[in-house]
Amino acid sequence: MSSNGVALVTGAAQGIGRAIALRLADDGFDVAVNDISVSTELQNLVKEIQERGRVSSIHAADVSQDAQVKEMIEAVVQTHGSLDVMVANAGVAGPPGLNIADVTLEEWDRIMNINARGTFLSYKYAGLQMVKQGRGGRIIGASSLAGKQGGVNQWAYTASKFAVRGLTQAAAIEFGSHGITVNAYAPGLIETPMMFGSLPTERQDLLKAQTPLKTFGVPTDIADLVSFIASKESKFITGQSISINGGLFSD
């Protein structure tokens, strides 16, 4: 079966990353998947991708580490022959509800290293590979509603997701002449383990009530958006962080 190209999705073991990997497989991409370590969830994801008739592989790496990201990109190309779509999805949220006095330097560095540095390294090495290939590509990052509007007691997370927007704009300018588009998705309230683990139930209920659609999104909502951003039909969209939040915040 012919392939539409090769995609790499970081943070793919669960939630949004998992949904994106499966959707790109449905779209005809061979899909390499990443997480911090090899897990049963990641192995099962590869099986599901293969059951869809696509080639898949696991590339465990810490996206905050320069050498590991570089080696991951090289391994994907060695395994699949190219890299056409990079989805820098890996990210973490901090403990909920911390006032500034309670935010430690260690927690700040942990979140910024994974969310911001990890996105930078993914953009960098994927972009360099796509430039080398000489046929364009798609680079896609994970911002957030918190990257559009400061979150309540979300100091480091908010800063990291604003950083993704800036990185996306800068990368779009640098890589644009090579036919590479760079965009990000900015989800609102999505039913994922990370969201439910970081927001108290009362806060979730309040935010749901404030959302015009009165509901949370699901990971496949984000995957549907990524499907379009990764497609050839999105060729004139770059440098954007696209809100997908049920109307909770409007740009």
Rank of each mutant, 00 (worst) to 15 (best):
V152G: 04
V131I: 15
L199A: 12
V164D: 01
T211I: 12
G188D: 05
R165T: 14
A142W: 03
Q133E: 15
G150L: 14
S143T: 12
K214P: 02
Q149I: 11
G141L: 07
A163K: 03
A171W: 09
P219S: 08
I139T: 02
I222Y: 11
S143A: 14
H178N: 11
F196V: 10
A223F: 01
V152S: 12
D205G: 05
A223D: 11
P187R: 07
V164N: 09
F196K: 15
Q154A: 15
P200R: 06
W155H: 14
G136Y: 00
G147K: 05
T220A: 12
A172N: 01
Q169M: 14
M194K: 10
I140W: 05
A159Y: 01
Q149D: 06
Q204C: 10
I190Q: 09
N183I: 07
G151P: 06
A170E: 11
T201A: 15
P200A: 03
S143D: 09
E202I: 12
A184Q: 08
L189H: 10
Y157Q: 06
P187G: 06
A146L: 15
G179I: 10
G188N: 08
V182W: 00
N153D: 14
N183Q: 07
R138A: 13
A209W: 01
G176R: 09
A170V: 13
A156C: 08
V131T: 10
L145A: 07
F162W: 15
L213Y: 13
A142L: 10
I190T: 12
Y157M: 05
R138K: 15
S177R: 14
G217V: 03
R203C: 01
F216T: 14
T211S: 13
I173P: 04
G188S: 04
G217A: 03
A142P: 03
G166M: 06
S198E: 10
M194R: 09
A209H: 12
I222A: 04
S198G: 08
K208M: 15
R138V: 01
L206Y: 12
A142H: 12
V226A: 12
P219G: 11
I180N: 07
L167S: 00
T201S: 14
D205F: 02
A170T: 13
G166W: 06
S160N: 07
G197I: 00
V131G: 00
F162L: 08
S160H: 10
P187D: 11
T181Y: 01
G179D: 06
D221T: 06
Q149C: 06
T211P: 05
L167N: 02
A172G: 14
N153Q: 12
Q154G: 14
P193D: 10
A171M: 09
Y185E: 05
G151I: 08
G141K: 09
V226Y: 12
G217E: 02
V182D: 02
S198C: 08
T168Y: 00
L199G: 03
L199P: 01
E191R: 13
A209R: 09
V152E: 12
K161L: 09
T192M: 00
Y157F: 13
T201W: 05
A159I: 04
A142K: 11
V164F: 08
R138C: 08
R203A: 15
L225T: 07
N183G: 07
P212M: 10
V152N: 09
A163M: 05
A209G: 13
A159G: 00
D224W: 05
P212W: 04
I190L: 09
P212Y: 08
G176V: 05
S198I: 00
T211F: 00
